[in-house]
Amino acid sequence: MKSYAPSRSSLLMAPALAWLTALMVVPCALVLALAFFRRGIYGGIEYTFTLENFGLVFDPLYAGIFLNSARIAGTATLIAVVIGYAAAYAIAAAPRRLQPVFLFFAVLPFWSNYLIRTYAWIVLLNREGLITQLLRWFGYTGEPPSMLYTEGAVIAGLVYNYLPFVILACYAPLSRLNPELAEASRDLGASAMTTFRRVILPLTVPGIAAGAVFVFVLSIGNFVTPALLGGGRFQMIGNLVYDQFLTANDWPFGAALAMALIAIMLLVLTAQALAADRAAGRIAEAKGGADG
């Protein structure tokens, strides 16, 4: 390879890069541009420059939706990380030959249809759903509890949908951890809990961060889960963008909202990259031990 092949590599990359440029970079740039125009009287676009749309993003009404979205996404992230880390830890502790099997089945639901997975929760949570029936079976006779169309339902749906990814992200560093590190910590007199807190946890932070960023980013921009499990009562940014484009017909404001979403995403990704950099030193040491 190396010396005589690279001349051809540009040719190989050209079609794909052209596709991505024409159908991702240009459209996204267009949305960015759109955000600086005014909404036309009949819903079209008036090509005069304005910063109004971005001002509107910070209007208490919409800023409230942003905060609400961040709170819901944050709660879902926290729960998903706690459950996901515990699951990944348990998988990494399972017998070696079972680990790939567990991992496969933990991730499998993630690749089935998102709508259907969300729909499954409607079936579970609706007034005559499984949970109500279980309660009846245990002798509960009162009104069926209202679980669907609550914030809790939205959070449950988000956790359910993105949990597999957290398991995957946390499993990677856990399975690569040099077991002698934990043993060394115990040998030096640390308790199991201290060993976990001072050795295992810090070394697996990158996995946690990757998983958390993923859940947060996908949750905050989510549209389907709030629409189906929140019954439209819990607006999140995704729904707001959707409404601007398909209902309210205010594309410039929708574009500004989308850009705000991207800005949040970039912020979170940058934070993660910084955390990963800081952790890199520790990881290199731990790996060196495992390889050497």
Binding site: L17, L20, T21, L23, M24, V25, V26, P27, C28, L30, V31, L34, V217, L218, G221, N222, F223, G238, V241, Y242, F245, W251, G254, A255, A258, L261, I262, M265, L269
Partner: peptide, 24 residues
Amino acid sequence: GLEALIFAPMIIPDIVLAIALLSF
């Protein structure tokens, strides 16, 4: 930059790509 370009479609929120393409 190239890495980011290739990685972006996997991480961009669906709704953003959706409205971008619709506008385009």
